[in-house]
Design a protein around this nucleic acid. Structure first.
Lengths: 207, 207
DNA sequence: TGTACATCAGTGAACGCGCGTTCACTGATGTAC
DNA sequence: TGTACATCAGTGAACGCGCGTTCACTGATGTAC
């Protein structure tokens, strides 16, 4: 890597660190691009050169934190004999706990990214895709062990469980009165229901 | 109602109609509060008197359209002997079809409302609550008929099915390549899975 | 190896735009007597 | 019933702010010969 390229990366990092700092201390909506530039000791125009918008900067600045949290959740996963439900809840616990550190910040981040047009948020989109793959693999593994029905579609199940996880997360970030335990309790109930179903056995058979 | 109150309501309606028109023709992000005031033949300051922000105006302007669509979906519901799944899918079909008329507009609406802090969007919040009550009642009815397990929590089921519905809707609004049929197909698969579960029978028993 | 030129990351100032907010005001409607 | 005053919806202009974008520029780094 040439000298030019390394210094470029350095300024990029300076901006990212300054952004992370200010996003946490002042909140993403209270700090301006110029604030971040000043904190990084860099020209405002330079910030725009590296990140096309404040949202893009927000995405990149926080992406790694989320990545690290997921990695940690996976690393501390309970042993293989733990049930699928317990393992999913372990991950949810780690994630919700992480978001709980700064709900306001992550509310804005998720609002501004997940609702952009597809393609505007490549980092988080890719992250979600990996996440779903991982869940899908977990469920396939359960099939092999005979705890999940062979006919069940693992991809659909992974996406469904993520839907449940995501909707509870939204409410958690929106509503300051909701505690971490309440969020986890609600998710546990919905996830359990998804795993077991609600129709009576004869109805299921007829399907 | 006094003359003063009626004229006040009239200007409010003028603003709402102008807003609806411009939101659809120019898109919500392309039209300014001043555009709307001009279209309504009203002072820009007056718009702010009636609606505290553009987002609040957006919420009120579109709330009734959604309300009407839901009412229509309920009115055209298939007969009672149709399965729970089919009835849910009928509603989803009506709703997705409605949003499909102007995906860009509803993407922005839903982004700007569902991710506001709780309490900022009273109309849609109430609407969702009513919606969930209605679903809950439908499921309780199924219990009475013996098609749904008595032990199943109807409120959890309603919220879960709505989660699945909502997440697919988000993707549908974000991704222009997704057709209405694809969205409905995906939702049908996830909803079916939620109703029937994925665990093998012996696992369910142990739970 | 040295020189002359090209490239390009970063600068700092300025621009236009839409937003919410504020202001003193006008004039029709409502009310007290 | 009539008059004098109070209320308040709506006006139009102005403000400050943050955003993305543009500009000519500087100066270090890279390259061609």
């Amino acid at each position: 890597m040439s000298r030019r390229e390394t210094t470029k990366l350095e300024t990029r990092q300076l901006i990212l660190e300054a952004a992370r700092k200010l996003f946490h201390t002042k909140g993403p909506e209270q700090c301006t691009m110029r604030d971040i530039a000043k904190e990084a000791g860099v020209s405002p125009a330079s910030v725009v050169v590296h990140f096309k918008s404040k949202t893009a900067l927000l995405e990149v600045a926080l992406y790694e934190d989320i990545e690290r949290t997921i990695a940690n959740a996976v690393a501390t996963m309970p042993h293989e004999n733990a049930s699928l439900h317990d393992r999913l809840m372990h991950i949810a616990h780690c994630m919700y706990g992480f978001y709980d550190n700064d709900r306001e910040l992550y509310r804005v981040l998720i609002r501004d990214t997940t609702f952009e047009k597809a393609g505007e948020n490549p980092y988080l989109t890719q992250q979600l895709e990996d996440y779903l793959q991982f869940f899908g693999a977990m469920i396939e593994q359960e099939k092999a062990q005979g705890t999940v029905q062979p006919a069940a579609d693992a991809r659909i199940a992974a996406a469904s469980l993520f839907s449940l996880y995501f909707t509870v997360l939204m409410e958690f970030l929106r509503n300051p009165n909701m505690t971490l335990d309440m969020a986890l309790g609600w998710l546990a109930a919905t996830a359990h229901q998804h795993l077991t179903g609600i129709l009576t056995p004869k109805e299921v058979k007829e399907k």
